[in-house]
Design a protein around this nucleic acid. Sequence first.
DNA 1: TGTACATCAGTGAACGCGCGTTCACTGATGTAC
DNA 2: TGTACATCAGTGAACGCGCGTTCACTGATGTAC
Lengths: 228, 228
Amino acid sequence: MSPTPREKQREQTLIEIKRLARLQMAELGPSGLSLNGIARQIGLTTPALYRYYAGRDELITALIVDAFTSLAETMESADSGVAAGDHAGRIMAVVLAYRAWAMENKEDFTLIYGTPISGYHAPEELTQPPARRGFAVILGILLEAYRGGKLRAYPYPSEVSLALPGPEGNEPESLPADVLYIGLVGWTRLHGMIVLELFGHTQTLIRSPEVFYRNEMEHLLRSVGLIE
Amino acid sequence: MSPTPREKQREQTLIEIKRLARLQMAELGPSGLSLNGIARQIGLTTPALYRYYAGRDELITALIVDAFTSLAETMESADSGVAAGDHAGRIMAVVLAYRAWAMENKEDFTLIYGTPISGYHAPEELTQPPARRGFAVILGILLEAYRGGKLRAYPYPSEVSLALPGPEGNEPESLPADVLYIGLVGWTRLHGMIVLELFGHTQTLIRSPEVFYRNEMEHLLRSVGLIE
DNA sequence: TGTACATCAGTGAACGCGCGTTCACTGATGTAC
DNA sequence: TGTACATCAGTGAACGCGCGTTCACTGATGTAC
């Protein structure tokens, strides 16, 4: 049952392929990802990669899953570093970790949240769960605050129709709409700041993007009663 | 001084090239833009396009300038349709037009705000002015409200360092930091919602994105005293 | 108004490069007896 | 422990396709006299 040398080697090559794929994305962007390029760098012929992935699309899927997972783990780890009762502190830690991850893993962030790669369609059953996992961290904290009566409702009209994710996802089961709404508001806000910064649209306007980001997030926490 | 037939023809071909380029982007994404593809569709050989653009990059730049200009004009026209004194109404009209433009011109929006095209670097002296022009619409309205004493300051720490664009841009001269800050907050918020929606990340969660969007924008206007 | 010359849109061939995927194969590693 | 066979990572050649850019050229349109 212990892994044979061949199995170990295979495992290592799989990791090496993804490592070089990420490296290539960093240089040429996600659309610059090519099997030929990876093979060249790894010192194999291109057809050899077909022993590891059925094709380019399967490799992209693997990279996307890895990226979402890495982001989610970063968020979870940031959350676990703050006292459980300090909801505002936990959320701040998580969203700051989110931003830091995006800045440090530009390619990965671009891969999952940038322009979709044309000709590639992600298989949702594989990418959805790790994608939701990160969001679930924030929803989980909000839910705890909500149950403790510490979350002030954010106003929204009854016409807003949200899809409440069932317990089959990573989200806590039976999520109140108020909690999901606040989660979505926070997510769209942080996403806007990060994307504009990452793609260079605000660099001439905002000289201290992290302070700006932090203030926006604190503002939101204040408006739902988690600060002050 | 009147245009010769040849000049008219040239003008039409220039327009036709950009039209087909946009069509191609709609199908294959911005990275799928190719001179060969355009030439094929227009019924010319590829080298013929060099009579019109010095190369692929110059064409991309032209498309980017067109996109920013089209967005700015849409915003300006939305603004002019509301009574000048109704600052909240004007801003709502402008941001709703912004979102509608993004949804109706997905390719153009992706081109200017999506993942930067690898290997291409936009000449800022050409793209910056039309990019700022749209933002200036919102800043202009905010400035009027500010001068009329109707804009409540949005709280932010003194450490935030904003670059106040000088009068050489399209921005109104000597913009108060409070106005710019609110403008930036609004921009990052609307951008987050639009990007997430456009790239399909919220479609399973938010079933009525426009209502959500409108509510977020109204919430902001309320928090700076322009509504209620 | 008619002719001579200049302009310039567009061609066709070529260059050198990239890509993903298939296929029959070699040869080393692993397994069963 | 040694041999016979099965597995499977990796090769090399080929297929058919894409791309941007250059160059010498043709032939129609426009201009000067």
